[in-house]
Amino acid sequence: MTDEIAIEFVDVTKNYGAAVAVDSISLSIAKGEMVTFLGPSGCGKTTSLRLIAGLELPTSGIVRIAGRDVSQRAASERNVGMVFQSYALFPHMNVLENVAYGPMIRGEAKATARARATEILEQIGLKGLSERLPSELSGGQQQRVAVARAIVQQPDVLLFDEPLSNVDAKLRRKVRGEIRDLQKRFGLTAVYVTHDQEEALAVSDRIVVMQAGKIAQIGTPRDLYERPASPFVADFIGDANLISGQVSKGRFVSADLDLPLAGADGQAQISLRPERIGLTPGDAGPVGTVRSCTYLGSRWEFEIETGFAELLASRPMTEAPIAPGTRVSLNIPDTAPIRVA
C-alpha cells in the first residue's frame, strides 16, 4: 500500500429526479487499498460504485481517478474493471473471447489480446475452460471469469458489486478469500460493495459505512467494531446493546448500571457488545433476569431483562447454560462500554 491516492470523491452528489441517492460524499482511497461500501439496502452503495465506474455521472461534485478529474467522463474512457452481481458475461462469446474483449477493444492485436487473456485465465485457475460458453460453467467458475475479465487490462480500480450474492453460502467464504488474495497479489485498488457485514470485515482494509446516501463512518474493521462513531454504526457492525443514560463526573449511570466513562457530562448513549457481558447467577451489581437461552453451536445467546434495557448477551459454548427465569448479575469490564452519542 502506498500513500498515493487512487480514487477521490469531493462533495459528490447524485440525484435521481427529486430523490437523493448519494448526498455530498467526500472520501479518498489509497492505491493498493481494498475498501468496502457497507450499509443497509438503498443507502447508495451501488450508486457510489457506479459513480466511480462512470456508469452514472455525478449531479455535482468531483470524482478523481489516479489524480485526474473524470467527473464528466464516460465509463469507456476510465480505466476501471467491474465485476457485476450477475457477472454479466457475454453469452455469445466463449470464456477466452469474454476475457480478450477488453484488450481488443482498447486496440490490441487479436493475438496479443488472446495471449493476455490466456495468461490471466491460467493465473486465476481456469486453464482448460477457455473454449466453453458461459452457460457451460458453474457459478463459481463464471464468477472467476468475471474477475479475470475485469483485471485483464490492469485497471486503475477494480469494482465489485455484491459479487458473492449468487454464490452459495459455503463457497462464499472461499471465494471472498480468493478475491482478497488476488487483490493483494496484483496490488490492485479495489472497491467492494456488500450489505453483509461479516464479508466486509473479512475482506477490507477499510470500510465505508453508509446511511441514507451519506457516510456514517470510515475506518478499519477494528475501528468500526471497537470504536463506532454512532449508534447506527454500532448497531450495523456486529450486534450491539445500545443503552441511554447520564454521564456525570466520569461515570455513566442508567438505573442500576454504573460504569466509568470519559467525555462530557450530560445525556449519553453507550454500546455494549454481547460477548463483553459476563453472567453469573446472583444478585450483586447490575442485575437482570434471563428471558431466553438459545444454543447457537459455537455459543449461547441470552436475552436478559434489566432495569435499563433488554440486553443481548453471548457466552462461549464452553460455559454452562442458564435456565430462563434465573436472576443474574452482569459483569461488565470497564473497557467494554463505548460512548456512541
Binding site: 464516460a74 469507456s76 474512457e77 474493471g81 457485476f84 452481481q85 457475454f90 453469452p91 477488453g102 487490462q153
Partner: peptide, 27 residues
C-alpha cells in the same frame, strides 16, 4: 436483456457504438 452486460462492455473500454454492435445486436 440484462443491461449489466452492456455496462460491462463499457467498463472494458467499449463506447456506445462498439457495445451496440458487438454485444447488443448479436443478442
Amino acid at each position: 436483456i440484462d443491461r449489466s452486460m452492456e455496462e460491462a462492455s463499457q467498463t472494458m473500454g467499449a463506447g456506445g457504438g462498439v457495445t451496440l454492435r458487438r454485444i447488443v445486436l448479436p443478442l
